[in-house]
Write a protein that binds this DNA or RNA. Structure first.
Lengths: 111, 111
DNA sequence: CTCAAGTTTGGTTTTTTGGCCAAAAAGGAA
DNA sequence: TTCCTTTTTGGCCAAAAAACCAAACTTGAG
């Protein structure tokens, strides 16, 4: 694989890591600061092992970093610019959702 | 599904759409302007039907839009802020790649 | 040392995704 | 209409991802 392709692969890996609702929830909850795995498990609501694997995917992509303190392992945001992009995505989704609702209610009226 | 979850799902859908190297290539090539499917097929290098499916995923997520003119269908970027985030991701990947290379060459020396 | 708490790893099953092929649409031109 | 070009759809198969459970690992406390 050449350097160009490798670049694209690594970028795709970041998007792939963010492309799952549980992982997105994890990342969003980390905007406020670091959390241990058990806290994140409570937020996501899946099995601990599942959450652990999600965290590893995010860490492998470079989005998160972890630090052990005692028996706990704390995860935090490493790739800061995710926050900015998520703002844009949220705004975009908000608009799209409104459009969807408009389209939906229009088709409901006309049918 | 409640509104909150729906929001997260839609956001994840956007990231998922961008989380594939072929689709990322498509999006990047559209920064310069619209392209028809056959042009995009040449860029990606997969079967036309495969490219078409990738395009649909990006369109469904709201990242792209399409417009038919004659027998051609032109795709273009709808979600403009992707460009900004990709800059950040590229920068980030660049740094990470340098780190990886550093780590790799160090381990090569020490072994 | 043993024990308990927190976390990860391995194995298995189920679900989703990607890629290719052939067939079907959708337009434009003759 | 028929033919040709461009694009999408459906079917199938292989590969990847996700979820769950049980077992293992790591560290601090007693």
């Amino acid at each position: 694989m050449n350097r160009e392709n490798c670049y694209t692969e690594m970028q795709a890996k970041i998007f792939k890591a963010l492309g799952h609702s549980s992982r997105l929830k994890i990342v969003e909850s980390l905007f406020a600061g670091e959390r241990c795995v058990c806290e994140l498990q409570a937020i996501v609501g899946s099995d601990m092992s599942t959450v652990s694997k999600h965290l590893n995917i995010l860490k492998e992509a470079g989005v998160l970093q972890d630090e052990r303190r005692g028996t706990n392992i704390y995860y935090s945001l490493r790739m800061k610019c995710v926050a900015k992009f998520l703002n844009c995505v949220e705004e975009f989704v908000g608009q799209t959702m409104e459009e969807q609702i408009r389209i939906y209610s229009r088709s409901k009226v006309s049918s």
